[in-house]
Design a protein around this nucleic acid. Structure first.
Lengths: 216, 216
DNA sequence: TGTACATCAGTGAACGCGCGTTCACTGATGTAC
DNA sequence: TGTACATCAGTGAACGCGCGTTCACTGATGTAC
């Protein structure tokens, strides 16, 4: 286990050239996923697209899902940017509302960038695939925890009964962001303008985090 | 077009027996979908489950997706219960918070009931399938419009600048409900208790609808 | 109530495509001296 | 700098499974008289 070296299917340790081919295959997988359903994404096509042969694909990945899993892991790593953004944000007063708007934008950008991979992650998660499920959990967990810290700090002391659970509130807000981001098209279809959805989200985030009415 | 009669593949008009077989196939499709991914759901298996033959399946549906489409349409019809629930709700004071809690519960129940079909609807929508996309839009639209009416009525007159767009706020809230409902398992995984998520959602709904802080 | 005919319903068995997958091989690259 | 050998990398071509799909047929049900 000490050696977590990359290995080709037949046990070879890939050199420069091999690794280049492998990442070309990953790129092509990502590209094709943008225009093709997982169901219709065939090893042969990916290989052709990467101007190589199916046999080569199998040298690096046991199947298409495994290649996407690698892409998903790469994506998961880059969520820490979102989390850092949340941690760096200021949640007081007008600045807080700006932070909420900015977070909304970042989320939507992120989703846009990884839309095809996210599609598969969601699909596989829904079907009970453990590996994708873990990636999904891990990747959203970091942002959610960061946001829950913000909630914990910004929330006023409970006036009445028991306060809300910060992690629950953060989780719900992240769920909101995630779903709006992934169904933007549906919003437009209903005649909701992106700007309006953005402001509604920012309001809800501000409410959720601070417990206060936003300074419009 | 006047005759929108059900027709079997070869043009026959199904009688009692035929319609019974058809709905048995639908039932089995729904059942199997609960434990099988769309990818692995084969005509042969559905047919076997319904103790009939693949040839019979093709008598009533051109393929598996089409059968699921029928199930999705049935589901879409039953969303009007959700919409009616929203319309019947009272959003003032303590009762308003109760309404928010109740709506949350209804949503989660609904999602639980149709989880397998919703999975496919989301998947197909994500992949750009028009038919499923339309069903999704239609089914969420009714609730969203109902909720936007509530927002319009309950929202205080704009103090400062421009008010939020009610439809946008409603859409965002519905997105939140939908995503939390479909990823309940993920919440538990993070150690968030269902009760806490429920309260956080109700708070956000109350905020979104009334623009006021909830009466804890 | 019974018989004959028409139509509805279901299916066994087979065909064939398409794709996943593999293997024995050729070609490319690297390195030792 | 050149040559030989080892290892890395890539692939053509084929095999075969599994499934979608169909067709010609048998069986069931309904109805007319």
């Amino acid at each position: 286990m000490t050696e977590s070296e990359l290995r080709a299917a037949d046990g070879r340790v890939p050199g420069r050239r091999g690794r280049a081919t492998r990442s070309r295959l990953l790129e092509c997988t990502a590209e094709m996923l943008a225009t093709t359903s997982l169901r219709d994404l065939k090893v042969i096509d990916i290989a052709r697209e990467a101007s190589t042969s199916p046999a080569t694909f199998y040298q690096y990945f046991p199947d298409v899902e495994s290649a996407i899993l690698v892409l998903a892991e790469e994506m998961a790593v880059s969520t820490n940017a979102l989390a850092q953004h949340v941690r760096a944000a200021n949640w007081k007063g007008k600045g807080g509302y700006e932070s909420a708007l900015a977070l909304t934008d970042r989320f939507i950008e992120f989703w846009e960038q990884y839309r095809p991979v996210l599609r598969v992650v969601d699909l596989a998660t829904g079907e009970g695939d453990r590996r994708f499920n873990q990636i999904r959990s891990r990747m959203l967990n970091e942002v959610t925890v960061a946001l829950s810290d913000a909630v914990r700090l910004a929330q006023p002391k409970p006036r009445g009964d028991e306060p809300l659970d910060p992690m629950a509130t953060a989780g719900v807000l992240v769920a909101m962001l995630a779903n709006v981001a992934s169904h933007r098209y549906g919003f437009e279809f209903w005649g909701i303008r992106t700007g309006d959805a953005r402001r509604s989200m920012a309001h809800l985030i501000y409410w959720g985090v601070t417990g206060q009415r936003p300074p419009v």
